[in-house]
Design a protein around this nucleic acid. Structure first.
Lengths: 227, 227, 227, 227
DNA sequence: TATGAATGAGATTTCATTCAT
DNA sequence: CATGAATGAAATCTCATTCAT
């Protein structure tokens, strides 16, 4: 029994290795510059081998995207207090976003890929490939749910359409990250970026909060672990 | 003297023609799909000739970007009332943005290119090519000036850093447009997009306005000419 | 002794399984589309294992070819009346050909492979690999013998060179089948194909028959089992 | 005026060169082994350049096919006596075929490509690409017309269906050539091959001729120029 | 004996850019 | 000034075959 298991484990590890190297490359040079040869070189495998693990380049990207989304959504969910008000939940969401960024910068990868393969996210856009669509809607339902809660409990603007706004929020968050990702790696200063993110997210909090919201809820904490 | 002048004039016209055709192509198929062959075909010139007018593809794009920015900034300036308050000016800025979009959709081109060639806009980014940097800072000073005015006259949040926020605002505005630009041309519904833009800009107005701002200034008009 | 025998038997069965699956695939998609991965998948073995049973892809194909030829030749021999005249024997040969086609369509496989790997069949061709050569000469001697008989008993054209003509006949028969095999499977209409074969074979019968041959021997029966 | 013309001429010559080199390669190694790199090397051009002259590999093959068919059909037509009987015309057709083979061996190329890209020629096959279809039907109408003439003037078997038989004849002719083409170049002995072709075509002549046809019309001449 | 894994070599196609005329 | 022509370098993907276990 040992052998089969070991093989399976090794196979998983290789998959993981490839995905990780691809992620690294995206982080380093951006998703546009990613190509199969580089992934192969970096993984110390041949190009052909990559195709044993992933049907094609898109499948590989989609998998990275799916993983990143899933872990982000899960991360946020563990930090969400189910009894919190809508504005509090939103605050937590942004704080998590900044937190994750501070820890792993995986968010770069997520966003980069999303930009590359999401045809669009306006209402009516249909062509989104299923896997990608899945990632996307996972995030959207999370956000949409938070917004609905806030509208219901009166902590968010009453005029908000949670469905539409959730899309917008993703678009904006992606944009910010994407913008950062285009910087050469050495120009990325985590502290500065965090400050930037904080500024934008606070702006958005003010933009969606109900008029009488407690002002302290419109401030985000600074993530401490930033190197 | 006549001959030299005519030559110069003709040269300018050719440049303009090339730029226009490139713009058309971007509008039609997106900036990712733009290639030199198509521009040449469309301009009824040879590829080699393009290189007589532009050093390389990037230079061409940069020029389009510069032009678009300049005309956008000018358009906005003509509509700005010098005596208006900061929040009013910001309102006018967004309204202009939506208005320009409604009229020419040139904004697609501007944004598409910016995303493609702007390394980034965070503080510390150095690699920004000068021409692009010029475009960029033209827009930034416009917005920054408006924000400063608002902070000074008390219509905008006092905590705002005009310099930093101007950058953020551009990033977000670009993101929204970029998102739209990825839709196939036939899927772009001007009315829907305008509604989307309006929603986001109003959110941003609320986000930056001082607490006691007249609420009617936080609403944007619908552009009427939308077909 | 039991163990060794069982092993040998199992080994034979595996070989047979692989060959059968390969045949099925050729029948389904044509010999051009055949690849080792598909054979392995279909046989529920690994690609590497195929190489334990066959030196390489060619060897595998050659074996299929040999089997098919052998069974075709045997099938024909059982139907040949040793006392029949040459023209009658030739008639039987064609009828068998059509009959085999009607029953199993294995003839597709035989022909497809032959076309792919037979360097050629003209006199002087030396490079023919032995196994293939064996298949080929098995068929040739069968036909050659029939032709010789016909020349001897005066039912076939006296000018015929049995040796050379046997080759020609095989070539033509292969061509017809090969042509059919290139049709997508669903476009293959057994009845139409049989009619086609019949037309050609009757033409060939007329072409080789002596002038005074009984005309009824120049007609082929329709195979009844055709669905 | 001279320059444009010269350029056009040179362009045509390059096209012709590429086609010729491709033909040579097919002649040398068969159509299966043909690849763009080899054509490029042989033409002393880069692969990319080939794509300036031909949209893709298929287009290149199709052009060779079209040329070869056209010149074959024209060659035959110049040799056909309009007042000749059907059997005489058929005799001329075969003689031409052998003659062309003896002169240029271009017939190898024609056949090789046809086999590669003609899905099939049985009734009901539709998927044939248009250009290829054009080549194919050019040959078919030539042959069909000859057969009709023969049925009408009583020199060919009355039971013949010109339409169907024309297809069959092409299939067989292609098969013979294809078979030869698979020989390594150095094993191809023009004299032997001609004798082979002659034997087969005479067989077919006998197969389609009316019973009372003048026997001398069933013999083909030997092509003299054979080296 | 069996196999999962790996790979070298090669196929087609694209595109920004250069150069001789 | 204009251009037709050419190309290097790269990208994605395929497949028969080998090897360590």
């Amino acid at each position: 029994m040992g052998i089969t298991e070991r093989k399976t484990r090794e196979r998983k590890q290789r998959r993981a290795l490839i995905l990780q190297k691809a992620r690294d490359l995206i982080l380093e040079n951006g998703v546009d510059a990613l190509n199969m040869q580089d992934i192969a070189d970096e993984s110390e495998l041949s190009k052909a081998t990559l195709y044993l693990y992933f049907e094609n380049k898109d499948a590989l990207l989609l998998e990275i995207l799916g993983d990143a989304t899933k872990s982000f959504v899960e991360y946020v969910k563990t930090r969400l207090d189910p009894s919190a008000s809508g504005i509090e939940a939103l605050n937590t969401l942004w704080a998590s976003y900044i937190g994750i960024f501070g820890e792993s910068q995986d968010i770069f990868v997520l966003t980069g890929i999303m930009r590359q393969i999401t045809p669009a996210s306006l209402p009516g856009a249909q062509g989104v490939k299923s896997a990608n669509g899945a990632s996307f809607s996972r995030m959207r339902s999370l956000i949409s749910e938070i917004l609905s809660r806030g509208v219901a409990d009166g902590t968010l603007e009453s005029g908000i359409d949670p469905d539409r706004l959730s899309r917008t929020i993703i678009t904006i968050a992606m944009a910010i990250i994407d913008d950062v990702a285009r910087l050469p790696r050495e120009a990325r200063d985590a502290r500065l970026i965090e400050a930037e993110l904080k500024g934008i997210f606070e702006l958005m909090l003010r933009g969606v909060a109900a008029r009488d919201t407690d002002r302290t809820l419109l401030k985000l904490p600074i993530h401490e672990g930033a190197e």
